[in-house]
């Protein structure tokens, strides 16, 4: 099929950036979206033009490296990662807009590549359980109700892609932050640091300049892993609980 892509080109962080159109004549519906860009890049290279910079690694929907806003939607029209999106989701003759994640906390590095270092710093602020290597008790000494374990797992499947931020009209990273709070907060191992974790992570979230959550729910809808909205409510509850107990 024939398609036109309009791609955000930005040479470096200080460049203005603009949308540039390219026509592709021979796109197979079995191609993945990123393979379509690979093909375009091969052509650009041979024409002596700079290929389009974009991130990807696993191309299996698990590493969270890829992420494009496609036609205004984070990761495109299907609920999946950009690398798992296929051209069969588009029609012959389509004009497809491709843009990077947009948030002042995810500065554009080049073209479609952004810097998501803020996520690592949020985790540094408390997104862990302090378990020094070698000090762990026998694993089965600590039973975890299956229901909690399953919920914790569900929240733990966040791949840190940042689509939630790109999709949220407020540029909030609450879903990402809340997924980690929920994952660790539902496990018995996570209890001792529950208060300090939420206080630290929320503080860092704000410090990074992310927006505030007004419970719009667009993040969950765009999240390729379907991290549920109730994680945000849990975060709120944990934070208010910690503040009420005077932990801040």
């Amino acid at each position: 099929m024939k398609i036109t892509v309009r791609v955000w080109r930005q040479a470096n962080p200080s460049d203005e950036g603009k949308m540039v159109g390219y026509d592709l004549d021979d796109v197979s519906e079995h191609m993945s979206f990123l393979e379509m860009l690979d093909v375009l890049n091969e052509r650009l290279t041979l024409e002596g033009e700079e290929p389009i910079a974009f991130d990807s690694d696993c191309r299996e929907g698990i590493c969270g490296m890829c992420g494009l806003v496609i036609n205004g939607l984070a990761h495109g029209p299907e609920r999946t990662t950009t690398c798992q999106l296929h051209m069969r989701s588009f029609k012959d003759g389509d004009v497809i807009d491709i843009e990077p994640w947009r948030s002042s906390s995810f500065p554009v590095v080049k073209d479609l590549v952004v810097d998501r270092g803020a996520f690592d710093r949020i985790i540094q602020a408390g997104g862990y359980i302090s378990a020094p290597t070698g000090s762990a008790p026998e694993a089965n000494n600590l039973p975890v109700p299956k229901e909690n374990a399953d919920h914790a797992f569900e929240a733990a499947t966040c791949i840190g892609c940042g689509a939630c931020v790109a999709a949220c009209p407020n540029g909030s990273a609450m879903l990402f932050t809340a997924a980690k709070i929920t994952h660790l907060g539902l496990l018995p191992q996570g209890q001792p640091e529950r208060a300090s974790r939420v206080l630290g992570m929320v503080e860092q979230h704000d410090h990074e300049g992310f927006g505030n959550c007004t419970n719009i729910g667009e993040c969950t809808a765009a999240c390729p892993k379907g991290i549920p909205l109730d994680t945000i409510s849990r975060l709120n509850r944990d934070l208010l609980g910690a503040l009420a107990k005077g932990k801040a």
């Binding site: 378990a131 026998e138 694993a139 600590l142 496990l187």
Partner: peptide
């Protein structure tokens, strides 16, 4: 396994 469980691996 002990180590990972202590870290919260679900």
């Amino acid at each position: 396994i002990d180590q990972c469980v202590a870290q919260g691996v679900p």
